[in-house]
Design a protein around this nucleic acid. Structure first.
Lengths: 250, 250
DNA sequence: CAATCGTTCTCACTCAATGGGAACGGGATG
DNA sequence: CATCCCGTTCCCATTGAGTGAGAACGATTG
């Protein structure tokens, strides 16, 4: 912008401001936002002020900043992801009722797995994922499915990039990951024992739309010692249902 | 911005761009957005392009623009409204199961009633509201509740401003509206027969948080000839439950 | 084949955005 | 009570980022 030393556009900066909010950090001061978005204090305060005026952000009684309702309102116009979620909910509820463990729906978003929904019951075990949370593709069972059935380009990009270790058993060796992906593609589902947390195993299957394209991954998080077959049966059935439900709406 | 003839900030313009999306218009061309946001074509194309790059907007195969998933992701960080919705869901589901008509949760947003959730069944009658949709405060039963239990300042502002007629029986006379609001405040609930649609009656009750402040309105849309008492009982009970659920989380 | 519409690119102009700094106030610490 | 720290607000000279008219291209339509 005019006189900016950093050379980024106003849009960039506004997005950076919004992106300082994370699933765990939902309220912050304007100064914090400025530091995290790497903006001079006065600029940050001004931008935050403008966003508050517009309703995209909100300021509560103690002057701290939150994401505004208007943003939620706009997001609900986002047909695509929400239609998928809507179509998936009934099937997901059945899976959750039968298996009684965390049931999750994830899509590919900017080279990560983005979780659209997660249903849990009181008996469900440990789980780090959250709604609107992200996990690296190579580390989660859902991610493995999205990777294995995604396009080659994406696969190579991930295999080339750094493979972060999230737990002791995460696959961080490109060759090993490549073999694993081939296995997932061949079997039609992914099992990720201890990739994220030592105590649990993720099981994921692809969800296809009417054209056969994989649009999402449906997964459950089982205890490490559980048998996966019953879950697999349920997941596959649910995935087929969701695909059918998607077809109707076109 | 530099050289702008209109004298609005970049933030304003970006918000205007985003605001061209409505519940019924979820995909549009960049040119359309420009026209609706009142921006010169080239500027609109540039801004839209930047928003697409940032992920807030998305461009599909035929180059048309949609709200991006990133916006949904950010919105989910918006604790406030979603916590309310979360707390309300179980109770709302029970109301919907018993009364078998549209059950809705609305909050006050920029002088309008914003609907956070709406549960409907196959037998439910006609209804114009949508999730993330808005209605004028004076025209919907939820709005009447939010007005009657909101602060004086808001009430006077609405009474002073233009009162749009949405149906034959909408209250558009300030004096009549004032009387109606007094009645709502005295009774503790609002009944709006034919204010929105001639065939239906809205019934709404206030939802209070642990401090007693009215934070939302819970409503059902009945057929015009239905008796309202059973619905009222359910609504009041649900509202109390929601208030209690809100308390736990603080 | 002409007309319309969406989109992309260019480019000279200029004023809105910028950010360093000063000042205020509240809260914590010694 | 004084001092320090931090978030916030306000001011203002500087300047380059944003702007928008217009040209050009391609796709669609009649």
């Amino acid at each position: 912008m005019a006189n900016s030393t950093s050379g980024d556009s106003v849009t960039d900066r506004l997005v950076r401001v919004l992106s300082t909010f994370t699933p765990t950090r939902t309220v912050q001061t304007a100064a914090e936002i400025g530091r995290r978005a790497d903006l001079p204090s006065s600029t940050a305060h001004r931008l935050v002020g403008e966003l508050v005026d517009s309703g995209l952000l909100e300021r509560d009684d103690d002057r701290r900043i939150r994401i505004g309702v208007k943003l939620w309102e706009l997001a609900t116009r986002s047909s695509h992801a929400l239609r998928l979620r809507q179509a998936a909910m009934p099937s997901m509820e059945r899976v959750q009722a039968r298996i009684r463990e965390h049931t999750q729906l994830a899509i590919l978003e900017q080279d990560e797995a983005l979780f659209l929904e997660r249903l849990s019951g009181p008996e469900s075990g440990s789980n780090v994922t959250r709604i609107a949370g992200r996990l690296p593709l190579h580390a989660a069972s859902s991610g493995l499915v999205l990777l294995a059935f995604g396009d080659r380009e994406l696969r190579e990009r991930i295999l080339a990039g750094p493979l972060v270790r999230t737990a002791a058993e995460t696959l961080t060796d490109p060759a090993a990951l490549r073999r694993k992906l081939a296995e997932v593609a061949a079997l039609g589902y992914a099992v990720a024992p201890g990739y994220i947390e030592a105590v649990s195993t993720g099981v994921a299957v692809p969800v296809r739309d009417e054209t056969g394209t994989v649009v999402a991954a449906l997964s459950v998080v089982l205890r490490r010692d559980a048998v996966i077959e019953p879950a697999l049966v349920e997941l596959h059935r649910a995935a087929r249902e969701i695909g059918a439900a998607l077809g109707y709406r076109r």
